[in-house]
Amino acid sequence: MNLILIAVISLGAIALISALILFLASKKFAVFEDPRITEVAKVLPQANCGGCGYPGCSGFANACVKAGSLQGKYCTVGGQPVMTKVASILGLEVEEAEPTVAVVRCNGTCEHRPLVSRNDGTRSCAITSLLYGGETGCSYGCLGGGDCVNACQFDAIHMNPVTGLPEVDEDKCTSCGACVKACPRNIIEVRPKGKKSRRVYVSCVNKDRGPIAKKACEVSCIGCGKCVKVCPFGAITLENNLAYIDPNVCKSCRKCVDVCPQHAIVELNFPPHKPKIAVVEEVDSTKTIETPKAVEAVAVSVDSPKENNN
């Protein structure tokens, strides 16, 4: 009996003293944190993907609360609904941002790009790009090593074994930009999703002169400039033998698609093509079936060293 009593008393005393120490410590070392940070963090998706440019969701929440404005802050995973919630917690105005998606700008499938050598090294784009220009004649295009697939946290990008190119699953893609950073060739670009996921873009990043590019790949941009001429909105620029469609200017009229001799300009999720009707309204009114799963099968071959060196 005595024994039990001693045990109870001694343990109880230890517990009391420890509790006291903890209590005092928590008072003394308490750090004030804006309670709104926790609130904001709660509504964020907690994917910690870094797509917003901050280290994880709590970093983003912290930045939102401290900045006092939501200018330039956007959670790519949660999109507009989450940003609205964040804005309501903080009592701020939310910026209207168009949803974006990752786009693979290379269409150099096994059929389009004949192999000229066999890569026997480690299957990693980063390592292959140290080694040489790639297994095909195109030294700008997709290396097919799947670094983007490994970088994706959302299981939204996969290699297509038939084409050897990565494909973005639009429903899963949060446009966090991890694949863009992972690609040593800068083939993947984050572009506005477009109305009904309809997009037009140049699916090539080859900066070689026309004949060389053409020899390397059947669907390469040869820098002929036809698309630049035909574009009524001035959305297309030609630099280093490569056309680029500015998504903010492009009205998706698709004139460039028809005119491209190499079929390097790709249109996605549009209803079946009627070459003569090229007006946007016309297309919208047709109200065709929504593509259930917009899978993008595009692989690009491009390299822009400037962006590379970040």
């Binding site: 192999l115 000229v116 050598s117 066999r118 890569n119 026997d120 090294g121 390592i127 140290l130 080694l131 040489y132 297994e135």
Partner: peptide, 8 residues
Amino acid sequence: NKLFVSLS
């Protein structure tokens, strides 16, 4: 033949 290419 298409040659093998790898790093040294």
